[in-house]
Nucleic acid binder design. Structure first.
Lengths: 183, 183
DNA sequence: CTCTGCATGTAAAAGGTTACATGATTCC
DNA sequence: GGAATCATGTAACCTTTTACATGCAGAG
């Protein structure tokens, strides 16, 4: 079977311990959400595929009348995860509607409109930065090393973006008419 | 009709002058590709929808036996673009498989494996940085202000990522065992 | 008893990529 | 004459989101 990034997200979560589909969704929402979100519509069908492929096993763990399946990695699943983790190829995709608007902002005719666009972008990055800061405050200490690194990356990235917007806004309001692209 | 980001990409390209579907694809590949790529499979159906909605008009401009339709904005199309350009809401989505691997890299058990992951990520950002640098070298001077800003943003973003990876790699090879997440 | 959280799942729609098919023109 | 570029388009496929449907358990 062909595994996609989605498959490895699930395998990666299960590497930390057995979990239900619901648990996986919660783990992703609280973890990789900022750079890799997934939905229930993907999780349950994929759990079945991974089970059929023998990479995970499901164990019934109902509590009273509430059905529940705890999934865990098989040895083969652990090997598949490790293989993926150690392959260098990795895609990077940025879908930034704010940048898109900035790209076409010359159509507005005024540098002040461009400045407002940059300010709107900054507002977004500030909001994300706030969320990440809250996460750091909450569970910053007891994160596994690589997870902490990921959080630090997000913090740094959005802080950089905020700073870039700020300095660009300054330049645009200062010399309206001599913008050179920021170089 | 509901317009999506795709629609505005086309409208935005046409705001700079009439173009064929082929021209639009070329403009996007040489411009917004790094943060908003589109394919022929989207362009031609969307050109028809935009025409039906009265936002653009197509003019036959065949050259000899080679068919060609030049599309241009109508007044209504220009208004729609301007309205979109001045609305603050803008999505930002990052799909970073390298970060995903980093997030789960604790499963590998060694900080050295984490370091290799970060190095792989750096290689990617260095490659993109090289491409952007080439673009800047090529047409850096005569870009419209906002377009130049977009290029500068990409340059800055990937340069930041490269630096983050570099300093993280240093820290991971130095104190193997005391990683604190980079704060 | 009601609200929130836990839990599983599907169907339809939306969005996007890839591969293919076709053919003219221009440059070497 | 051959290769690259210009040009249009579709069909199949893949992935992902959204909305819906269902119902138990625990807290207040």
């Amino acid at each position: 079977m062909e595994l996609r990034a989605l498959s490895y997200v699930i395998l990666g979560v299960l590497a930390r311990g057995p979990a239900s589909g619901y648990d996986i969704k919660a783990a992703v929402d609280g973890g990789t959400r900022y750079f890799w979100a997934i939905s229930y519509g993907q999780i349950y069908p994929e759990l079945r595929r991974l089970t059929d492929a023998g990479l995970i096993v499901g164990e019934e763990a109902a509590q009273g009348g509430r059905p529940r399946t705890l999934h865990r990695l098989t040895d083969e699943g652990a090997r598949a995860l490790e293989a993926w983790l150690t392959t260098p190829e990795a895609g990077f995709e940025l879908r930034d509607e704010g940048l898109l608007k900035l790209f076409f902002a010359d159509a507005l005719g005024s540098l002040d409109a461009v400045r407002r666009r940059v300010a709107a972008k900054r507002a977004h990055h500030e909001a994300v930065l706030g969320e990440l800061l809250a996460i750091e405050q909450g569970k910053g200490g007891d994160l596994p090393p690589a997870v902490g690194l990921t959080l630090a990356y997000g913090l740094g990235l959005h802080a950089w973006a905020v700073e870039w917007c700020r300095s660009t806004e300054r330049r645009l309001s200062g010399d309206a008419g001599h913008a050179d692209g920021g170089r």
